[in-house]
Design a protein around this nucleic acid. Structure first.
Lengths: 115, 115
DNA sequence: GGCTCGTATCGTAAAATTACGATACAATGA
DNA sequence: TCATTGTATCGTAATTTTACGATACGAGCC
């Protein structure tokens, strides 16, 4: 994939997190963690129709994206990182509802900005 | 990619939208649309260091995910679909801050659920 | 020491994504 | 009618992702 160099740091980070969440198995892991608060790998392997090694790899991706974190027990007890999803929610809200802009969003020939 | 069959419809939809946003070029398109409100394809081609055909393909992905929509002028004038990002923000918030649950999230040996 | 159990990592095959040039196609204007 | 312009689609090569089995590795127990 070609690197898009004029991304802001925020956009770059958001793309990374979006990508990690954009896989059904990984999203399932995240919802499972949200439901249970804390899981060991085995819990997640049981919850998914995938091989243990595959689940472990997905966990690694989620960990690298900062979405889940291991406990102090040596990476065998996972939970959601509390801030990332909150930040992502704010990012999405900012995109669709820019607080400052008074423009009413919407398509159509008349709504094209003059600039 | 293997299909995870026990995803809820909401999770499936979220994964689709996350995946579409999880590419730097596409996220750039979305932020550009958020900034300008409305763009024709050429505007986006100019904003990105990619070939016209590539940008067009990314637009198609975003359109199929329901994130952008074409205007009535025959798909040549794009804007953000107003509801999807709002919905996605709500989805993320629900994941990290489940309103009902009184449990305090967090890792550690003591917080493992008894079940 | 030698088991078993749970998990991470390695190597690899299949599938999907990404980007590009070439081309098609509709609208516009000479 | 014929060229031009803007955009979508096609075909394809390179890269990345996904999933699996095999294997390594540490902890706990005999």
């Amino acid at each position: 994939m070609k690197t898009i160099e004029n991304l802001t740091r925020e956009e770059e980070r958001a793309a990374e997190v979006f990508r990690a969440l954009g896989n059904p198995a990984r999203l399932r892991i995240v919802t499972e963690l949200a439901r249970r608060n804390v899981c060991i790998t085995g819990d997640l392997v049981n919850a998914l129709p995938l091989a243990q090694s595959t689940v472990s790899q997905h966990l690694k991706v989620l960990k690298e994206a900062g979405i889940v974190q291991g406990s102090i027990e040596g990476d065998q007890c996972y939970c959601l990182a509390p801030d990332v999803l909150r930040w992502l929610a704010a990012f999405c809200t900012e995109l669709c509802c820019p607080a400052e802009a008074g423009d009413t969003p919407g398509c159509g020939p008349a709504s094209r900005r003059p600039g």
